[in-house]
Design a protein around this nucleic acid. Structure first.
Lengths: 116, 116
DNA sequence: GTTAAATATAGATCATCATCTATATGTTGT
DNA sequence: ACAACATATAGATGATGATCTATATTTAAC
């Protein structure tokens, strides 16, 4: 489990407007102007949100004429569901199984418990 | 689907350190000092993170002597999985099925398409 | 080629956040 | 009571983020 990568996806999703965009795209691809119709904010703001979602690997963009078509990436859907399950279900080997640190523990100060 | 509430959970999770805390708690309850052993940051910073997780309904706290025991809330696990499925799977009725807004559309300017 | 439409970029602003140090509060054992 | 430990609170700081206005770029249509 890579906390950094999963965290990036979560951060990109952690905005009500972007959640709604993802929800819209879960039904199929849409172009920017169609998405914009569902919101109150300005076009540059939408452009910003779509960039954030792309940078997180959540959506892909395909230009067709003057339209940008956005699609929810299946790889994201798979990875996100997988990471969520890994996080919320107790895994076979838990970080906490390593026990607390002792005074002369070699792990002290170093994050060797990382599951990344 | 309540984007605001789901967004709050996501925002609270959208930090690598808090993700690791959740991962630790997925194996069972832990007290603050045991959690702190797995990190490099200071005790007040942990205190802050635990508050954020509590405020989002992700964990619960139970004081026992001088120890605070933290537990991953089963209700959170259920709700989060449910919301995630709702978001990523095309629902029967999609916002986009309503079609684009027309000039005299009564929906114009009002977010009546909300699925909340 | 000029106009209109769709989208992107630049730069600014205000809010939120992760972290720190310093200190306070509460609890247990002597 | 006092010392030691576990945790919380206050306040500051530097970074990041959501949004805006203004403007640029790209593309289709006439």
């Amino acid at each position: 489990m890579n906390y950094e990568n999963y965290g990036q996806m979560l951060k990109a999703m952690a905005d009500p407007n972007r959640l709604k965009i993802i929800d819209l795209l879960s039904c199929g691809s849409l172009c920017a102007c169609d998405i914009l119709d569902h919101f109150d904010f300005t076009q540059p703001t939408l452009s910003h949100h779509m960039k954030v979602l792309q940078a997180a690997g959540i959506i892909s963009a395909r230009k067709e004429g003057k339209w940008q078509h956005y699609t929810l990436r299946p790889e994201f859907i798979d990875l996100f569901k997988r990471d969520t399950d890994t996080l919320l279900n107790a895994s076979e080997h838990c970080v906490c199984d390593d026990g607390p640190l002792q005074e002369n523990d070699s792990r002290k100060g170093v994050l060797t418990n990382e599951k990344d």
